[in-house]
């Protein structure tokens, strides 16, 4: 077990290295940061000097190695645009994205599994069929369109909820949270629905089809034949078996919730890392882009690792058979 975890962490580190390398090889095509940093009145001398200072005259592999050297010490360099350490900027922006992603993920998983189970158990009911049809909207509409539609309905027409920003936040140490104020909570509603809707419908449809499959299994029939209550059959026996394959997809989807927050954050002008990244691209702010990409990959890889470990927790067949024998 421990050997397995160490092996997986090793693999994860390798993935991170490769992601970084690919990212750095791409930065050269985004644009030249020097153009934005120096004003109109610049000489070739200024350009060369700044380029040398920033190390941009070196090949991208060297730049990458330098970045890695700093990164392992927690130093991601200084933002070209803001002139402040990137780690400081990211820490400032991360709570907004993480809170948004957490709420979206929670909504997606809880409502997705709930509706999936419901539509599987009542597979011939009218309500279940209406939900299934409606879920096609969630799967097929692009995120930004859902965001704009929600803004139009709830902010412009009804005026119930704010259309942009985080509302008031409260600082707890370095973490600014929107959970503790009314405006903060209100501001969370539309963006988190926008961000989580696709994942929610995906999880729901997946849970439904897996559960229908499980309900056909012999051990479910046997559980019924033993006179267990319908609730115990559906939840204790069927749902647990349903979740094994669902966990993989859900884990990957949680990763993409954080990654795709970029679109939602742009639509709602949400002051998180996604919006920061978009702005960084416009300014070719390489340190910010690099740190953001690494942060996202760390999260993806981390979530995957957790998913793999969850398998062990939920499925005894994967654990090392210590009792053994027949």
């Amino acid at each position: 077990m421990l050997a397995y975890i160490i092996q997986r962490i090793g693999q994860s580190a390798l993935v991170l290295l490769i992601v970084g390398l690919v990212a750095f090889s791409m930065f050269r095509f985004v644009g030249d940061p020097i153009d934005n940093m120096l004003g109109q009145e610049r000489t070739q001398e200024d350009i060369d000097r700044l380029r040398g200072q920033l190390g941009l005259d070196q090949p991208f592999v060297m730049q990458y190695v330098k970045f890695l050297g700093g990164a392992v010490q927690g130093n991601f360099g200084v933002s070209y645009r803001q002139g402040r350490p990137v780690s400081e900027i990211l820490l400032e922006r991360a709570p907004a994205t993480l809170e948004l992603a957490a709420v979206s993920g929670f909504l997606a998983i809880s409502i997705g599994i709930g509706l999936g189970v419901f539509t599987a158990i009542r597979r011939n009911g009218i309500t279940a069929n209406v939900i299934m049809s409606a879920s096609l909207i969630g799967v097929s509409l692009p995120t930004f369109l859902i965001g704009i539609l929600l803004i139009y309905l709830f902010s412009v027409e009804l005026g119930w909820l704010p259309s942009f920003g985080r509302g008031e936040t409260v600082k707890i140490g370095n973490w600014s949270t929107g959970f503790l104020t009314e405006t903060g909570l209100k501001a969370l509603i539309l963006p988190s629905i926008t961000l989580g809707l696709y994942q929610m419908t995906l999880i729901m449809r997946l849970v439904r089809s897996e559960m229908l499959e499980v309900l056909r299994q012999d051990y479910i029939r046997f559980a019924r034949a033993r006179g267990l209550r319908e609730r115990a059959v559906n939840f204790r026996h069927a749902l647990k078996n349903t979740l094994v394959p669902v966990i993989t997809v859900t884990g990957l989807q949680l990763g993409s919730i954080i990654a795709f927050a970029i679109i939602t954050e742009t639509v709602f002008q949400w002051p998180g890392v996604g919006l920061l990244f978009i702005n960084a691209i416009q300014f070719v702010d390489i340190p910010v882009m690099a740190a953001y990409l690494m942060l996202i990959s760390v999260m993806f890889v981390g979530i995957n690792l957790i998913v793999d470990l969850l398998y062990f927790a939920i499925d005894p067949r994967l654990r090392v058979d210590r009792t053994g024998g027949h």
Binding site: Y219, K240, N241, I314, D315, P316
Partner: peptide, 10 residues
């Protein structure tokens, strides 16, 4: 089939 009659996770 005893291989499929028992819930594998319990």
């Amino acid at each position: 089939d005893p291989l499929t009659s028992l819930n594998p996770l319990l």
